[in-house]
Design a protein around this nucleic acid. Sequence first.
RNA 1: GCGCCAGUAGCUCAGCUGGAUAGAGCAACGGACUUCUAAUCCGUAGGCCGGGGGUUCGAAUCCCUCCUGGCGCACCA
Length: 552
Amino acid sequence: MIKARLQEIVDRCFQEGVKREYWPQSADDYALETPKRQGQGDFSTNLALIAAGIKKKNPREMAAKLTGLLADYCDITDKIEIAGPGFVNFFIRDAVWQDVLPGICQQGESFGPPKIGAGKRVLVEFVSANPTGPLSVGHGRQAVLGDAIARLLEATGHEVTREYYYNDAGRQMRVLAGSLRARYLELSGIPCELPEDGYQGKYIYDIARELLDEQGDKLQGVDDLTPFQKKAEQAIFKDINGTLQRMGIHFDNYYNEHTLYDDGHIDDVVARLRDKGLVYEQDGAVWFKTSEFGLEKDRVIIKSTGEPTYRLPDIAYHREKFRRGFDWMVDIFGSDHIATVPDVMAGITALGLDASKVTVVLHQFVTLMRDGHQVKMSTRKATFVTLDDLLSEVGPDVVRFFFLMRKADSQLDFDLDLATQQSQENPVYYVQYGHARLTSIIRQAGERGIDVPGRDNTHVSLLDQPEEIALLRDMASYPELVKNAALDLAPHRVVFYLQELAAKFHSYYNKHRVISEEDLEMTKARLQLVRGIRIVLRNGLNLIGVDAPNSM
RNA sequence: GCGCCAGUAGCUCAGCUGGAUAGAGCAACGGACUUCUAAUCCGUAGGCCGGGGGUUCGAAUCCCUCCUGGCGCACCA
């Protein structure tokens, strides 16, 4: 908020400088940033360095021209100085930071990023696991990532639809049905081998048992896999949804790949590509000329058996997303799907659609560590820890927070021993504890009959300690941080921000007393600060779907 | 062999579009509870940012190259 104000001032001076021919318009890619080190001001701009680079002049001379202009326009600083190679550093007046506080208190829950996405419809597709088994820990990362991204986009005013895309037909499902049938027969006392590549997970037994309870031995002589497939799908989706619910994640829409066939979209996409001469037949299969789009080689979209490969429905599905009128489409995929992305993008482009409206977020794998060893996970084998298991061990808050502590690009080691046994040292609790403490202080004040100031600014000038200004500065940067995190689809930045804010507060708490009997005015000022920090912490936690407890 | 991602303190990781003297948490060591919650705080120590070239006023960040790890490179999804 303060930064935006200063940015406006600097922009105005820049334009004035262009008029006076201090520097050319082309120097407009300068930045206004927050320096890391103390003593370098609250903000800093490299305008002079950029301008000097273009005009081949001394940067410090340029900086002097800039400060000359700023003297006329800038009313929120104590001091503006030229430093280092030619940076111009801004020292914001304490009063400016202090004035931020009543605004935050007044806005409360709505304190956050600007609604830059207002009127924009975004589709966020994630999880999209086929109903062949319980959600894995890897799906968990994706679920958390997708939901957090959706929340970030909502916070910035986007109209978000969360969608789960799935396929309940095809080879995998047939193998699943065969596996269930085998277990069903086995439980009925009829020895039966699991089919080749069958699903070995014990959950198949659970479903078989249910089926046996419901149907008795009626299905023993049935060769048709349909009843088994139906039962498996229904039971597994129930399980998946139960897990998602425990995480507090809901979807607005479940999109069945099958509708793409029923509504003729698959055939239509092939026809359209054929019209454009981008499709040909070879070896009994239908190929898509992906090489026309800069890719290595062409790809099969319909196998010689007549069955489409996954690419074709993926392309058709994305065309449907466009037709449904979304302005932005975000896909969250595991890194094992990396190969599909260029093909789908080529398909979108081939159909005359704007591929830049699709953003794919690829997340790297989760490695589960137990007893210092990596746990290998496979949906088909029996050796896997499910997301549900994880939730039972550490709870949804820890799962969410941990999965968001790393950027999507990084592999993630989830140390079960650490997450379960040493949960006291969890960064999640660190932040939550901060919130509980803040709440407790306000409660104490209430018990002593002290009212906590809200929107009024009669006390804020008392908040002149360095720690207080630092806190206010961080709080003021929250809206911009969230805005950038949303646009970059990077929720981990919110997590890091919250840890830092909590740390500053804990430190402050240990150094300064908020409620003091001798000084009621100071008490009120600090209570207002406490209230403001609590709002920001609470809003931030809410943004990543983590609970903000009032006591711990 | 090719593509994508990663390589930053002993460990796990931040570092937004290139910016000034490189950041946090854990682990280690030494301290702080008659006080608004010690699930906390304070201090100490810890680094050729994988190696090597290049681009420029300036590189952990951009380009090239090599090394290491992960994921892919199907008429599986």
